[in-house]
Amino acid sequence: MLNFIIRRLLLLIPILIGVSIVTFLMVHFIPGDPARILAGQNATPEDVLAIRERFGLDKPLTVQYFMFMKALISGEVKSLRTEKNVMEEIIPRFLNTLQLSILSIIISASMGIFFGIIAGVKRNTWIDNLVMGFSLFGVSMPVFWLGILLMLLFAVKLGWLPAGGKGTWKHMILPAITLGMATSAIIARMTRANILQVFHQDYIRTAYAFGISERKIIYKYVLKNALIPVVTIVGLQFGYLLGGAVLTESVFGWPGVGRLIAESIFTRDYTLIQVGVMFVALIFVLVNLIVDFTYAILDPRIRYGQG
């Protein structure tokens, strides 16, 4: 197990270097001159040149890449736009995203698993159809539209919850629900499919043949086995959520990391995009790693580190 952890952690280094090269190239291939954009309207030619020089944007790409890596290792990458240390921008935003993601994954996992189980157990009944119909609705509903409708109802009409922004726990509810809607629908569908699959296994048929009550079969055998793959899905979804949900964060004015990266793409804040993407990639890989461990704990058949 320890070997496995070390190996997986070491693997992070080439992954991050790869990510850094890919984002670096992508960022530099998007058309748009950051100096021109940063200089803004009314800038004199000298201003534009000064910005280019100040950030080394006039140097060859390879030189710029090594300059960036050097600054990254010493922890001194500065945002082109605000000239603050990028981590100062990224960490608070990431913590905001983390808060929202945790609430959202709690909502979506509990809703998704609950409805998935109901649909799976009551398969092919009207309940199943209703739940699956709703989940289709959840997956296909544009975040944008759902978010605004929720705000119109709960904030403007009823006045129960705030319309966007960040402050108390109340500010998190609507964005978390909006964000969790699609995720819970995916989780519900996965749960249902797994339950159906487990129901067709030999051991379940055997259990029925032994005359064990259906209730016991479902709780003791079906759910236990069906929920293992669901953990993977929940984990993966959580990883996605941590990458920041640009649309939800924008609609609700939630200062998360997704919005930060999106905004820095529009302003061509090269350094912030690069570090932001690397950071999100790192988090994603770490979450996956944790999911893999949880897997091993939940399912004794899975063992890491051998072979």
Binding site: M151, L152, P162, G164, G165, S250, F252
Partner: peptide
């Protein structure tokens, strides 16, 4: 000074009294 990028949301915030 708060930041909300979406124009519609900003209007809703004023209507609801959140801003």
């Amino acid at each position: 000074f708060r930041v909300t990028p979406e124009d519609v949301t900003r209007a809703l915030q004023i209507q609801s009294g959140d801003a």
